[in-house]
Computed example of a mutant assay.
Amino acid sequence: MKNIRHLNDINDIKISENRLFYSATHEEIKSGATTDVYFLRTQDILEHLGIQDKVVTAEIFARKSGVFVGVNEVINLLRDKNIEIWSLEEGDIFEPKETVMRIKGPYSEFGIYETVLLGIISSSCGWATAARKIKEVVKDKPLLCFGARHVHPSVAPVMERAALIGGADDASCILGAKFQGKEPKGTVPHAAFLIAGDTLEIAKAYRDITPESEKLTILVDTFKDEIEESLRVAEFLKDRLYGIRLDTPSERGGVTPNLVYELRQRLNQRGFENVKIIVSGGLTPERIVELSQSGADAFGVGSYISDAQPIDMTMDIKEVEGKPTAKRGRIPGEIENKRLKKFK
C-alpha cells in the first residue's frame, strides 16, 4: 500500500467492496492510514515552510502508573526510519509522569505515527496493568486470561499477550499465547455439554481423546447442582481428574465463597483432596481474595482484563534542533530517566 504523507494522499485510499473486516491490516498501519488526519496537515504545512526535516526529540509519558508493554510493536512500526529510540522494556513498571519512551530524529520520519504508537502503548499498558492487579491478589495460584471474546478479534492476541506480560500465567487465545512462546490453555465450554446432554458423557469423551499426561478440568455448572455434579465427575474420572471448574452464571448467584468452601469440604470428605477448584465468571480482585480464602485454586479472568481502560499516553516535543523547548506547563528539554534502554 502507498505510504500516506500528505492530505492529497487520502484521495487514493479506496475501500474494496469485498473487504471482510474493518480492522486495519499491517500494511495499512505501516502506511499511515490509521493516523489522525491533522498529522498529515502538519506535514504539508512544515513542508511548505521547508522545515519538515528538523531534528526533534519527543518524549512519551503517562499520568498514572502501570506495566509497560508495546515497545516491540513500536520498534517494528518505525524500523525503517532514520531515528533513534530509547524506551523502558516490556514488563517494566512505570510511575506517573515518568518518561517511558524517547524518540529522536527528523520530524518527517515519525511525526505522522504519533496516533499509532500512542494507541499501541496505551492499550497494551492498560491490559497488562489490569493483569498485574489480578496477579497481585492471586499470588502463586494460576491465572488464566480468556478475555478474547470481549474484544475485536484483530486485537484479541495483542490483549492476551499483554496480559501474559502483565502477570497472567496462561492465555486461551491461540495467537496471544503463541506470541509469548506459550501453548494456549483451556478446557471445554458449556456448548459441548449442552449438545451432548450430560456432563459425564463429555467427561468420558474428553478422557478418551486426551493423552494421560494431560490434565483434565471439567465444567460442572451446566445441568445440576455444582456439588452433586462435581462428585459425580470425581467418582467417574478418579485420578485422571485435575480440576473442577465453577462458572455459575449471575442468574444463579454466581460463584460464591460459600459454594467454593462447601465444594472443597465435600471433595475432601470423599478423598479427592488433590482435585483443584478453578473459578471464573466476572472475577475482580476483590472477589478473587474472597474466593481464594475459601479454597479456590486457580482463576480464569476475562472481562476485568479485556475491559481495562487504556492508560493515556502523551507525546511531547522537548527539543528542536538540539534546543530545549516545550509547550506551557511542561519542562523544556529531555527528562532524564536512567532506566531507558536504547532500542534503535
Rank of each mutant, 00 (worst) to 15 (best):
N3E: 08
R5H: 13
H6V: 14
L7H: 12
L7G: 15
I10D: 09
N18I: 03
A24D: 03
E27V: 00
K30T: 01
K30F: 04
A33L: 07
A33E: 08
V37F: 15
Y38D: 13
F39L: 13
F39S: 15
L40C: 14
D44C: 11
G50C: 09
Q52L: 12
Q52S: 14
T57K: 12
T57N: 06
A62I: 14
K64L: 08
K64F: 06
G66F: 15
V71F: 08
V74E: 08
N76S: 03
L78R: 09
I83N: 03
E84H: 06
E84F: 04
E89Q: 07
G91T: 14
F94A: 10
E95Q: 13
T99S: 14
T99W: 08
T99H: 05
G105H: 14
E109S: 10
E109R: 05
I112R: 12
T115W: 10
T115Y: 12
I120K: 08
C125Y: 04
G126W: 05
G126A: 11
A128C: 09
R132V: 08
R132K: 14
E136L: 09
V137T: 06
V137N: 01
V138T: 01
K141V: 04
C145F: 09
C145R: 04
G147D: 02
A148H: 07
A148Y: 07
H150Q: 04
V151E: 04
V151R: 03
V158K: 03
V158R: 03
V158G: 02
M159N: 06
E160M: 07
R161G: 11
A162C: 05
L164M: 10
G167D: 07
A168W: 00
D170T: 11
A171N: 08
S172E: 03
I174C: 01
Q180D: 10
G181F: 00
G181H: 02
T187S: 10
V188D: 02
G197D: 10
D198L: 14
L200P: 12
I202T: 07
L219E: 06
F223M: 13
S230H: 12
R232D: 15
V233H: 03
V233F: 06
A234V: 11
A234I: 06
E235L: 13
D239W: 08
D239N: 09
R240N: 06
Y242W: 09
I244A: 06
S250H: 01
S250I: 05
V255A: 00
P257G: 02
V260C: 08
Y261R: 06
L263D: 08
N268I: 07
N268T: 06
N268K: 13
V279N: 03
S280H: 02
S280A: 12
S280F: 00
E286A: 02
R287A: 02
E290L: 10
S294P: 01
D297P: 11
V301F: 02
Y304M: 05
S306K: 13
D307V: 03
Q309L: 11
Q309A: 11
P310L: 13
I311N: 11
M315L: 15
I317K: 07
K318E: 11
G322S: 07
G322D: 11
T325F: 15
A326N: 12
R328S: 15
G329Y: 11
P332I: 13
E336A: 08
N337Y: 05
K341Q: 10
F343P: 00
